[in-house]
Write a protein that binds this DNA or RNA. Structure first.
Lengths: 150, 150
DNA sequence: CCATGTGGTCAGAGGATCTGACTATCATCG
DNA sequence: CGATGATAGTCAGATCCTCTGACCACATGG
Protein backbone atom coordinates (compact mmCIF):
# COMPACT_ATOMS: atom_id res chain seq x y z
CA UNK A 1 0.00 0.00 0.00
CA UNK A 2 1.01 3.58 -0.29
CA UNK A 3 4.46 3.45 1.12
CA UNK A 4 5.24 6.80 -0.45
CA UNK A 5 8.69 7.89 -1.36
CA UNK A 6 9.48 4.82 -3.41
CA UNK A 7 9.31 7.31 -6.22
CA UNK A 8 11.86 9.58 -4.59
CA UNK A 9 15.59 9.34 -4.67
CA UNK A 10 15.68 8.10 -1.10
CA UNK A 11 13.00 5.58 -0.26
CA UNK A 12 11.93 5.61 3.35
CA UNK A 13 13.18 3.10 5.86
CA UNK A 14 10.10 0.95 5.54
CA UNK A 15 10.53 0.57 1.82
CA UNK A 16 14.20 -0.25 2.23
CA UNK A 17 13.30 -2.92 4.76
CA UNK A 18 10.76 -4.35 2.41
CA UNK A 19 13.32 -4.51 -0.37
CA UNK A 20 15.92 -6.16 1.85
CA UNK A 21 13.49 -8.72 3.24
CA UNK A 22 12.23 -9.47 -0.21
CA UNK A 23 15.70 -10.04 -1.56
CA UNK A 24 16.37 -12.52 1.20
CA UNK A 25 13.14 -14.33 0.47
CA UNK A 26 13.83 -14.40 -3.25
CA UNK A 27 17.23 -15.94 -2.69
CA UNK A 28 15.75 -18.54 -0.41
CA UNK A 29 13.14 -19.39 -2.97
CA UNK A 30 15.75 -19.67 -5.70
CA UNK A 31 17.56 -22.13 -3.47
CA UNK A 32 14.36 -24.12 -3.08
CA UNK A 33 13.98 -24.39 -6.81
CA UNK A 34 17.67 -25.16 -7.24
CA UNK A 35 17.26 -27.93 -4.69
CA UNK A 36 14.92 -29.60 -7.14
CA UNK A 37 11.59 -28.39 -5.84
CA UNK A 38 10.61 -26.87 -9.16
CA UNK A 39 6.96 -27.60 -8.48
CA UNK A 40 6.79 -25.58 -5.28
CA UNK A 41 5.34 -22.09 -5.61
CA UNK A 42 6.66 -19.19 -3.52
CA UNK A 43 3.50 -19.22 -1.43
CA UNK A 44 3.81 -22.91 -0.69
CA UNK A 45 7.45 -22.46 0.25
CA UNK A 46 6.58 -19.64 2.61
CA UNK A 47 4.13 -21.88 4.42
CA UNK A 48 6.50 -24.82 4.46
CA UNK A 49 9.05 -22.64 6.22
CA UNK A 50 6.69 -22.40 9.18
CA UNK A 51 6.62 -26.13 9.90
CA UNK A 52 8.33 -27.11 13.15
CA UNK A 53 10.64 -30.13 13.33
CA UNK A 54 8.06 -32.09 15.32
CA UNK A 55 5.14 -31.02 13.18
CA UNK A 56 2.69 -28.16 13.36
CA UNK A 57 -1.08 -27.91 13.18
CA UNK A 58 -2.68 -26.29 10.19
CA UNK A 59 -4.27 -23.55 12.27
CA UNK A 60 -0.88 -22.69 13.71
CA UNK A 61 0.65 -22.53 10.27
CA UNK A 62 -2.19 -20.27 9.22
CA UNK A 63 -1.63 -17.95 12.15
CA UNK A 64 2.10 -17.71 11.51
CA UNK A 65 1.62 -17.03 7.82
CA UNK A 66 -1.23 -14.60 8.55
CA UNK A 67 -3.69 -16.40 6.34
CA UNK A 68 -6.96 -18.20 7.03
CA UNK A 69 -6.98 -21.82 8.02
CA UNK A 70 -8.78 -22.61 4.78
CA UNK A 71 -5.98 -21.11 2.72
CA UNK A 72 -3.41 -22.92 4.80
CA UNK A 73 -5.27 -26.19 4.36
CA UNK A 74 -5.38 -25.60 0.62
CA UNK A 75 -1.62 -25.09 0.47
CA UNK A 76 -0.90 -28.06 2.72
CA UNK A 77 -2.98 -30.20 0.38
CA UNK A 78 -0.76 -29.22 -2.50
CA UNK A 79 2.44 -29.73 -0.56
CA UNK A 80 1.21 -33.11 0.60
CA UNK A 81 0.32 -34.22 -2.90
CA UNK A 82 3.78 -33.13 -4.08
CA UNK A 83 5.40 -35.12 -1.28
CA UNK A 84 6.98 -32.34 0.77
CA UNK A 85 4.83 -32.70 3.87
CA UNK A 86 2.64 -35.34 5.44
CA UNK A 87 -0.29 -35.19 7.82
CA UNK A 88 -0.21 -37.37 10.90
CA UNK A 89 -2.79 -37.52 13.67
CA UNK A 90 -1.97 -35.35 16.65
CA UNK A 91 -1.62 -37.77 19.60
CA UNK A 92 -2.62 -34.98 21.95
CA UNK A 93 -5.85 -34.01 20.21
CA UNK A 94 -8.22 -36.22 18.27
CA UNK A 95 -9.44 -33.37 16.08
CA UNK A 96 -6.03 -32.22 15.03
CA UNK A 97 -3.45 -33.40 12.56
CA UNK A 98 0.19 -32.46 12.59
CA UNK A 99 1.79 -31.28 9.39
CA UNK A 100 5.32 -32.62 9.19
CA UNK A 101 8.07 -32.28 6.65
CA UNK A 102 8.94 -35.44 4.78
CA UNK A 103 12.58 -36.28 4.16
CA UNK A 104 12.22 -34.53 0.84
CA UNK A 105 10.64 -31.46 2.43
CA UNK A 106 13.38 -31.32 5.02
CA UNK A 107 16.05 -31.34 2.34
CA UNK A 108 14.41 -28.40 0.63
CA UNK A 109 14.07 -26.49 3.87
CA UNK A 110 17.69 -27.09 4.77
CA UNK A 111 18.78 -25.72 1.42
CA UNK A 112 16.73 -22.59 1.98
CA UNK A 113 18.05 -22.10 5.49
CA UNK A 114 21.60 -22.42 4.28
CA UNK A 115 21.10 -19.72 1.68
CA UNK A 116 19.52 -17.36 4.18
CA UNK A 117 22.41 -17.87 6.57
CA UNK A 118 24.86 -17.27 3.78
CA UNK A 119 23.08 -14.08 2.72
CA UNK A 120 23.15 -12.77 6.27
CA UNK A 121 26.88 -13.42 6.39
CA UNK A 122 27.20 -11.33 3.26
CA UNK A 123 25.27 -8.56 4.93
CA UNK A 124 27.60 -8.69 7.88
CA UNK A 125 30.62 -8.58 5.65
CA UNK A 126 29.21 -5.58 3.83
CA UNK A 127 28.12 -3.68 6.92
CA UNK A 128 30.80 -4.70 9.36
CA UNK A 129 30.19 -6.74 12.48
CA UNK A 130 29.37 -3.82 14.75
CA UNK A 131 26.76 -2.34 12.45
CA UNK A 132 25.24 -5.73 11.82
CA UNK A 133 24.90 -6.34 15.55
CA UNK A 134 23.32 -2.92 15.97
CA UNK A 135 20.90 -3.66 13.17
CA UNK A 136 19.82 -6.90 14.77
CA UNK A 137 19.33 -5.22 18.10
CA UNK A 138 17.37 -2.36 16.59
CA UNK A 139 15.07 -4.71 14.73
CA UNK A 140 14.43 -6.63 17.93
CA UNK A 141 13.60 -3.37 19.67
CA UNK A 142 11.25 -2.46 16.88
CA UNK A 143 9.39 -5.71 17.01
CA UNK A 144 7.06 -4.95 19.91
CA UNK A 145 5.62 -1.95 18.11
CA UNK A 146 5.42 -3.55 14.67
CA UNK A 147 4.50 -7.17 15.25
CA UNK A 148 0.88 -7.54 16.28
CA UNK A 149 1.57 -11.18 17.18
CA UNK A 150 4.74 -10.80 19.17
CA UNK B 1 9.71 -18.31 0.94
CA UNK B 2 11.57 -20.31 3.49
CA UNK B 3 12.87 -17.55 5.62
CA UNK B 4 13.54 -20.01 8.41
CA UNK B 5 13.61 -19.13 12.03
CA UNK B 6 10.18 -17.56 12.08
CA UNK B 7 9.41 -20.60 14.15
CA UNK B 8 12.17 -19.87 16.63
CA UNK B 9 12.09 -17.56 19.56
CA UNK B 10 14.22 -15.02 17.74
CA UNK B 11 13.28 -14.55 14.11
CA UNK B 12 16.17 -13.56 11.91
CA UNK B 13 16.75 -10.00 10.83
CA UNK B 14 15.09 -10.54 7.50
CA UNK B 15 11.88 -11.73 9.07
CA UNK B 16 11.90 -8.84 11.50
CA UNK B 17 12.32 -6.42 8.61
CA UNK B 18 9.47 -8.05 6.81
CA UNK B 19 7.23 -7.68 9.84
CA UNK B 20 8.17 -4.04 10.34
CA UNK B 21 7.67 -3.15 6.70
CA UNK B 22 4.39 -4.95 6.65
CA UNK B 23 3.11 -3.13 9.70
CA UNK B 24 3.92 0.17 8.04
CA UNK B 25 2.13 -0.87 4.89
CA UNK B 26 -0.88 -2.10 6.82
CA UNK B 27 -1.19 1.21 8.63
CA UNK B 28 -0.93 3.09 5.38
CA UNK B 29 -3.62 0.94 3.86
CA UNK B 30 -5.88 1.47 6.85
CA UNK B 31 -5.43 5.19 6.32
CA UNK B 32 -6.42 4.77 2.69
CA UNK B 33 -9.61 3.04 3.67
CA UNK B 34 -10.26 5.57 6.43
CA UNK B 35 -9.83 8.32 3.86
CA UNK B 36 -12.90 6.93 2.14
CA UNK B 37 -11.29 4.70 -0.46
CA UNK B 38 -13.11 1.62 0.73
CA UNK B 39 -13.18 0.23 -2.80
CA UNK B 40 -9.40 0.22 -3.21
CA UNK B 41 -7.68 -3.10 -2.61
CA UNK B 42 -4.24 -3.31 -1.02
CA UNK B 43 -2.73 -4.23 -4.35
CA UNK B 44 -4.29 -1.28 -6.10
CA UNK B 45 -3.10 1.03 -3.34
CA UNK B 46 0.42 -0.31 -3.64
CA UNK B 47 0.46 0.50 -7.31
CA UNK B 48 -1.14 3.90 -6.82
CA UNK B 49 1.69 4.77 -4.44
CA UNK B 50 4.11 4.53 -7.36
CA UNK B 51 2.49 7.28 -9.42
CA UNK B 52 4.63 10.41 -9.76
CA UNK B 53 3.10 13.87 -9.40
CA UNK B 54 3.45 14.50 -13.12
CA UNK B 55 2.20 11.10 -14.13
CA UNK B 56 3.93 7.81 -14.83
CA UNK B 57 3.75 5.29 -17.64
CA UNK B 58 2.21 1.92 -17.01
CA UNK B 59 5.44 0.10 -17.80
CA UNK B 60 7.27 2.21 -15.24
CA UNK B 61 4.63 1.47 -12.62
CA UNK B 62 4.98 -2.19 -13.43
CA UNK B 63 8.75 -2.08 -13.02
CA UNK B 64 8.52 -0.28 -9.69
CA UNK B 65 5.93 -2.68 -8.35
CA UNK B 66 7.83 -5.65 -9.77
CA UNK B 67 4.88 -6.93 -11.72
CA UNK B 68 4.25 -7.40 -15.43
CA UNK B 69 2.89 -4.57 -17.52
CA UNK B 70 -0.24 -6.62 -18.09
CA UNK B 71 -0.92 -6.86 -14.37
CA UNK B 72 -0.19 -3.16 -13.96
CA UNK B 73 -2.55 -2.31 -16.80
CA UNK B 74 -5.24 -4.45 -15.21
CA UNK B 75 -4.89 -2.60 -11.91
CA UNK B 76 -4.77 0.80 -13.57
CA UNK B 77 -8.02 -0.07 -15.34
CA UNK B 78 -9.68 -0.65 -12.01
CA UNK B 79 -8.25 2.47 -10.43
CA UNK B 80 -9.35 4.50 -13.43
CA UNK B 81 -12.88 3.15 -13.29
CA UNK B 82 -13.01 3.96 -9.58
CA UNK B 83 -11.86 7.50 -10.29
CA UNK B 84 -8.49 7.54 -8.53
CA UNK B 85 -6.29 7.85 -11.60
CA UNK B 86 -6.70 8.98 -15.17
CA UNK B 87 -4.83 8.18 -18.36
CA UNK B 88 -3.62 11.03 -20.52
CA UNK B 89 -1.58 10.80 -23.71
CA UNK B 90 2.13 11.20 -23.18
CA UNK B 91 3.10 14.31 -25.18
CA UNK B 92 6.60 12.93 -25.57
CA UNK B 93 5.63 9.55 -27.00
CA UNK B 94 2.69 8.66 -29.16
CA UNK B 95 2.58 5.07 -27.96
CA UNK B 96 2.52 5.93 -24.31
CA UNK B 97 -0.06 7.19 -21.87
CA UNK B 98 0.66 8.79 -18.55
CA UNK B 99 -1.16 7.54 -15.49
CA UNK B 100 -1.93 10.47 -13.22
CA UNK B 101 -3.66 10.76 -9.88
CA UNK B 102 -6.98 12.55 -9.93
CA UNK B 103 -7.80 15.01 -7.19
CA UNK B 104 -9.47 12.16 -5.38
CA UNK B 105 -6.46 9.89 -5.81
CA UNK B 106 -4.15 12.58 -4.54
CA UNK B 107 -6.21 13.02 -1.39
CA UNK B 108 -5.94 9.30 -0.68
CA UNK B 109 -2.21 9.28 -1.30
CA UNK B 110 -1.68 12.24 0.98
CA UNK B 111 -3.55 10.50 3.77
CA UNK B 112 -1.34 7.44 3.38
CA UNK B 113 1.85 9.49 3.34
CA UNK B 114 0.82 11.27 6.50
CA UNK B 115 0.28 8.00 8.33
CA UNK B 116 3.63 6.61 7.21
CA UNK B 117 5.38 9.75 8.38
CA UNK B 118 3.59 9.54 11.69
CA UNK B 119 4.53 5.89 12.13
CA UNK B 120 8.17 6.64 11.46
CA UNK B 121 8.04 9.36 14.10
CA UNK B 122 6.76 6.73 16.51
CA UNK B 123 9.65 4.48 15.60
CA UNK B 124 12.04 7.28 16.30
CA UNK B 125 10.44 7.99 19.63
CA UNK B 126 10.68 4.33 20.55
CA UNK B 127 14.25 3.83 19.40
CA UNK B 128 15.73 7.20 20.15
CA UNK B 129 17.02 9.63 17.56
CA UNK B 130 20.54 8.21 17.39
CA UNK B 131 19.45 4.65 16.82
CA UNK B 132 16.87 5.72 14.28
CA UNK B 133 19.51 7.62 12.34
CA UNK B 134 21.81 4.59 12.47
CA UNK B 135 18.99 2.39 11.23
CA UNK B 136 18.32 4.64 8.28
CA UNK B 137 21.97 4.73 7.38
CA UNK B 138 22.35 0.98 7.68
CA UNK B 139 19.37 0.37 5.47
CA UNK B 140 20.78 2.71 2.86
CA UNK B 141 24.07 0.83 3.01
CA UNK B 142 22.26 -2.43 2.58
CA UNK B 143 20.36 -1.30 -0.44
CA UNK B 144 23.04 -1.85 -3.08
CA UNK B 145 23.30 -5.53 -2.20
CA UNK B 146 19.57 -6.16 -1.79
CA UNK B 147 17.84 -4.02 -4.39
CA UNK B 148 18.31 -5.46 -7.86
CA UNK B 149 16.91 -2.23 -9.34
CA UNK B 150 18.85 0.30 -7.35
C1' DC C 1 -23.81 -34.52 30.15
C1' DC C 2 -24.53 -30.30 27.89
C1' DA C 3 -22.65 -25.79 26.17
C1' DT C 4 -19.10 -23.62 24.21
C1' DG C 5 -14.85 -23.51 21.85
C1' DT C 6 -11.44 -25.29 18.56
C1' DG C 7 -9.30 -28.08 14.47
C1' DG C 8 -10.40 -29.18 10.08
C1' DT C 9 -12.94 -29.62 5.72
C1' DC C 10 -16.20 -28.47 1.82
C1' DA C 11 -18.27 -25.19 -1.43
C1' DG C 12 -18.26 -21.07 -3.87
C1' DA C 13 -16.46 -16.78 -5.26
C1' DG C 14 -13.29 -13.10 -6.37
C1' DG C 15 -8.77 -11.00 -6.94
C1' DA C 16 -4.09 -10.81 -8.70
C1' DT C 17 -0.69 -12.64 -11.42
C1' DC C 18 1.39 -14.86 -15.25
C1' DT C 19 2.65 -16.29 -20.46
C1' DG C 20 1.89 -15.63 -25.17
C1' DA C 21 0.44 -13.03 -29.00
C1' DC C 22 -0.69 -8.86 -31.28
C1' DT C 23 -0.88 -3.67 -32.78
C1' DA C 24 0.98 0.85 -32.91
C1' DT C 25 4.64 3.86 -32.43
C1' DC C 26 9.48 5.13 -31.89
C1' DA C 27 14.45 5.14 -32.85
C1' DT C 28 18.35 3.84 -35.35
C1' DC C 29 21.06 2.85 -39.05
C1' DG C 30 22.08 2.04 -43.61
C1' DC D 1 13.95 7.97 -46.49
C1' DG D 2 12.93 3.22 -45.74
C1' DA D 3 13.79 -1.11 -43.19
C1' DT D 4 14.70 -3.17 -38.67
C1' DG D 5 14.52 -3.84 -34.01
C1' DA D 6 12.91 -2.07 -29.58
C1' DT D 7 9.16 -0.24 -26.70
C1' DA D 8 4.12 0.99 -24.88
C1' DG D 9 0.04 -0.91 -24.51
C1' DT D 10 -3.79 -4.27 -25.02
C1' DC D 11 -6.33 -8.80 -25.56
C1' DA D 12 -6.99 -13.65 -24.42
C1' DG D 13 -6.51 -17.45 -21.56
C1' DA D 14 -4.98 -19.80 -17.60
C1' DT D 15 -3.46 -20.46 -12.88
C1' DC D 16 -2.75 -19.44 -8.27
C1' DC D 17 -4.06 -17.65 -3.93
C1' DT D 18 -7.20 -15.88 -0.82
C1' DC D 19 -11.44 -15.06 1.29
C1' DT D 20 -16.43 -15.85 3.51
C1' DG D 21 -19.82 -18.92 5.03
C1' DA D 22 -21.27 -23.29 6.47
C1' DC D 23 -20.54 -27.53 8.43
C1' DC D 24 -18.74 -31.73 11.18
C1' DA D 25 -15.87 -33.89 14.79
C1' DC D 26 -13.70 -33.68 18.93
C1' DA D 27 -12.33 -31.24 23.42
C1' DT D 28 -13.03 -28.82 27.63
C1' DG D 29 -15.28 -26.84 31.47
C1' DG D 30 -18.94 -26.29 34.22
Amino acid sequence: MPDDSSTEDQPNVGVLMYVAARSLEARAYDAVVAAGAVDVTPTQARLMAQVDPDGTRTVTLAARARITKQSAGFLVDQLERAGYVERVPDPADGRAKLVRLTRRGRAVGDAADAVVAESLREWEQHLGAARMRALEETMRLLRPITDPWA
